[in-house]
C-alpha cells in the first residue's frame, strides 16, 4: 500500500471507529484529538512492521477465559445452589462470612431493598455472567484460579440463590446463566459527564 493509500485506509478505519462509537453513549473522542503530540506520524510507515507472530487458535483458547453477558465463553457443566453450599462453606466462608452477608471481606449477600448498606450481588451487580467470570479468574483469594468449572457454576448458583434471585433447585449452566435477570440491572446508566462548564 502506498502512503496515500495507507492514509485513506487509516482514515477509513478511524472514521468507522468513530462512527461506531457514536452509537455508544460513552464515546467522547473529538475528531481533532487524533492529531495529538503522542500520536506517531505514520506517513512513512510500512503497512506492517512484521514484528510479532500469529497466535495459534490453541494458544488463544488457553488464555481466553472471559465470559460475556450473552454467555459467550461459558464452558460445559452446571451447578445448583444446593451443591454450591458445600463449596462455599469450605472455600469462601472464611472471608465472606457464614452466609455471605457477614464479611469480613466483600459482603456478597443482601437482597435488593433490604437494610444492608453493602454493595452486594443482590443489590448492585447488573450481570449474572460477571459472577462466573470473576469467581473463576480470581477466587478464592488464597488460591486464585483453582476452582473447577463445575465448582464455579455451583458457587454462582449458590450466590444467586442467597441473594434471592434464583431458587435452590435452578440449574445454572451456559444456557441459563445469561438469562438470569439481575435486580440492579435497570439502575445502571452510562457516564453523562462530558467536560465543559456543567457539573455532573
Amino acid at each position: 500500500m502506498n502512503n496515500q493509500g495507507l492514509f485513506y485506509f487509516l482514515l477509513c478505519v478511524w472514521l468507522i471507529a468513530m462512527t461506531s462509537c457514536g452509537s455508544s453513549p460513552v464515546g467522547t473522542a473529538a475528531p481533532g484529538k487524533l492529531a495529538t503530540a503522542s500520536t506517531p506520524d505514520t506517513s512513512n510507515w510500512p503497512s506492517s512492521f512484521a514484528f510479532g507472530h500469529t497466535a495459534s487458535a490453541s494458544y488463544i483458547d488457553s488464555i481466553d477465559i472471559d465470559i460475556a453477558p450473552d454467555g459467550k465463553g461459558l464452558p460445559a457443566g452446571s451447578g445448583t445452589a444446593t451443591e454450591g453450599q458445600t463449596v462455599y462453606a469450605v472455600k469462601c466462608a472464611a472471608c465472606h462470612g457464614k452466609t455471605g452477608a457477614e464479611g469480613p471481606f466483600q459482603k456478597l449477600v443482601g437482597a435488593m431493598g433490604d437494610t444492608t448498606k453493602a454493595k452486594t450481588i443482590g443489590n448492585y451487580w447488573p450481570y449474572a455472567t460477571t459472577l462466573y467470570d470473576y469467581i473463576r479468574r480470581a477466587m478464592p483469594f488464597n488460591e486464585p484460579g483453582s476452582l473447577t468449572n463445575a465448582e464455579v457454576y455451583q458457587l454462582t448458583a449458590y450466590l444467586l440463590h442467597a441473594n434471592q434471585i434464583i431458587d435452590a433447585t435452578t440449574v445454572i449452566d451456559a444456557g441459563s446463566l445469561p438469562q438470569v435477570q439481575m435486580p440492579a440491572r435497570a439502575l445502571f446508566v452510562n457516564d453523562d459527564r462530558k467536560g465543559g462548564p456543567e457539573i455532573r
Binding site: V13, W14, A17, M18, S20, C21, S24, V26, G27, T28, A29, K33, L34, T36, S38, T39, I65, D66, D133, R137, A138, P144, G145
Partner: peptide
C-alpha cells in the same frame, strides 16, 4: 487476572 473493557476509540486516540 484483572480485566476492563475500553472503548476502541481510546485505542486509536492515545
Amino acid at each position: 487476572v484483572m480485566t476492563r473493557s475500553v472503548p476502541i476509540h481510546k485505542g486509536w486516540e492515545d
